[in-house]
Design a protein around this nucleic acid. Structure first.
Lengths: 152, 152
DNA sequence: ACGCCCGGACGACACTTGTCTTAGGATACA
DNA sequence: TGTATCCTAAGACAAGTGTCGTCCGGGCGT
């Protein structure tokens, strides 16, 4: 049991993203960062309160998504799951639920309905060429499931 | 205000999928279909009860995702949002939340970490070629936003 | 020594989701 | 006519989310 199947709701994801960005932060730092970034938390467009951020970090910690250590006087939190882990899980779930478990269908849908800029299009083409030759290549990307490895 | 921002949770999505498949159905038909398909509803692996399906259809209706009409003695439900609408919303939200609003990043991620079978890879290549020549082609796919149009 | 402010611990509260039970009206069948 | 069926309506209830208010102990500036 590497990963408890806890889900990471949107609000928690917002604070988690801050941690991913800066590596680690205290409650107040997260709050500050979000405000500067013009984060719109609650439905009234009012920014979150300190308590809200604290709660979210707390919940993330009980879910084993972040860790805290008592540095100065304030706790400092840092993520213990990587962006990629979360992305993978979300994508997999989306593919399972709406694309019959076929990632290819999602790719097609994306290309058709969401224009991608030429640079990225080129990158995609290149990647495909590469894969054509070496079909079974597994960049460490797809390891069988390590609990997480944001900073090993 | 074309689309109320109601979200469609997983359980509701499961019944909605049945409606997409068969066009329309009563509560019991949905239930039947799910059971035949070996649907695993609740966490104990026990199939849903009639009431559960009814509730879900009800909630979908208040969310304006399906419509019901009293046909025989039982209500018949049918979807009023298309698969594509739901897919688009989910994908957009995913891209916004985890890929900086860049669909290209998601495409890259998909290609790298989720192997796609050669047939689809070919299809993708073809699509890309096509787009290379005619970059601004818009199959009716991308209409500016009609509230939904599965059967107007 | 005295307030003050910061940071943390608790817990509260409304709404959404996941799942059902049950009461009550029709229907259909013996 | 009674009874087994099927359907809808209503509501219940525990967990998970979204968002705080608040009380409390420690430092710190004066």
């Amino acid at each position: 049991m590497a990963k408890p199947p806890h889900s990471i709701p949107d609000s928690e994801l917002d604070v988690l993203k801050v941690l991913w960005d800066r590596g680690r932060a205290t409650v107040r730092e997260v709050l500050q960062t979000l405000r500067e970034a013009g984060h719109v938390g609650n439905k009234d467009g009012k920014p979150w309160s300190y308590a809200t951020v604290a709660t979210l970090l707390d919940r993330l910690e009980t879910k084993k998504v972040v860790e805290s250590d008592r540095a100065d006087q304030a706790f400092t939190y840092r993520p213990i799951v990587s962006v990629k882990d979360v992305q993978r899980r979300r994508v997999e779930s989306l593919v399972d639920k709406l694309y019959q478990g076929e990632p290819g269908l999602l790719v097609l849908h994306l290309l058709k309905s969401h224009p991608l800029d030429p640079h990225q299009a080129e990158e995609v083409r290149a990647l495909l060429e590469e894969m054509r030759e070496e079909p079974a290549s597994k960049p460490p990307e797809d390891a069988p499931r390590s609990p997480s490895d944001p900073s090993p």
